Computed example of a mutant assay.
Amino acid sequence: MRLLDGKVAIVTGAGHGIGRGHALELARQGAKVVVNDLGGSVRGEGAGRAADETVALIEKRGGTAVPDYSDVGDAGQCGELVQRAVSAFGKLDILVNNAGIVRDAVIWNMPPEDFDAVIRVHLRGTWATCHHAAKYWRAAAKAAGGKVGGRIINTTSGAGLGGNFGQSGYAAAKAAIVGLTQTLALELLRTGVTVNAVGPAGLTRITATIPGMGEAFEPDEVPEGEFHPMDPSNSSPLVAWLASDEADHVTGQVIRVLDDRIIWMRGWTERATISSGGRRWDAAKLGEVLAQDLFETRGAGLRFAQS
């Protein structure tokens, strides 16, 4: 038995790069895959048939897949995407949200419509597919009178977790996807659906837009069994495992994959706390207290001492 034998998966943005790597790995592990990709440019413009190339690769390797060209930013089309999996293969077990575009610029140079376009694909697209998948799994759980083993794996990034110059739209979307992931993990827990986020890396069409990064390459260009630190599919084995029955105890987590490292992220936690002792804070005196007792710096305290 392979890890995902008998499973049905949707992978969005699977025509190139990281998404293609996920689709290939899920198929390698036995899943039947709906390969979704609108086929547009890295800016989200135009349309094409990139999904066909990934399907052909899966079939060449003995797997089963069908293409889908839905626009994930369109909620109605996301409903049709979920139904396509059910119509083609009888059910849906796994949803991997990977579709994304970039329109980078510093905030004072970024047109609002570019910000909206990035949010639409990354955040709205992730929410919309999750929305329809959740409705499908809740109905299935009610019909079965118990839990279903659904899996959602969303995509965040280093920009969303720590910020990145010139990517206010992209970073905002990827940070929001973490909040969405953790919320859905709570909402879908009783249904038996796990929801996690993976932060992958690799030399893709998106990262290739960064000056000095070099040209993008596809995961199928790396010989099977070999390792390359910038292979877009380095995170795909983790995605396949999270999609499996073995990972039914893992939900609400954020995990990064950088070259050969898997990194479990802690996220925002309480770092230090100060108390006013039950009194209202005095804004005029707050700077000195924050500097010395919270931020553990002495600059403000010295300034007050010298004044």
Rank of each mutant, 00 (worst) to 15 (best):
K147I: 02
G202N: 12
R279F: 11
W127Q: 04
R43V: 09
S87K: 13
T183I: 11
R279T: 13
G192N: 10
D52Q: 00
T207K: 04
Q29E: 15
A141R: 10
R190E: 15
G160I: 06
T209C: 08
A284D: 13
G287L: 04
T12M: 02
T194C: 10
E80V: 07
G73A: 06
R151T: 04
V178R: 09
R138G: 07
G39D: 03
A284E: 15
T12R: 02
R124V: 05
A75Q: 11
E246A: 15
M230V: 00
H228G: 00
N196R: 08
G48F: 02
T269Q: 14
T181Y: 08
K91L: 01
A128P: 01
W137L: 11
V257H: 10
L38Y: 08
T273Y: 02
D114A: 07
Q306R: 13
L180I: 04
E270I: 08
Y69I: 05
D260Y: 10
D245Q: 11
T129G: 14
G15M: 01
A144H: 02
F295S: 05
I210R: 12
A143S: 12
G146D: 03
S41G: 15
V35N: 00
P229R: 08
L123Q: 07
R2H: 14
W281S: 08
G277Q: 08
D248T: 11
G62R: 04
L95W: 07
A56Y: 00
G160V: 10
V222I: 13
A197G: 02
H228F: 10
R28D: 10
V222F: 03
E187W: 12
K285E: 14
W137S: 09
E25F: 01
V178H: 04
R205K: 14
D104E: 06
A300V: 15
G145L: 10
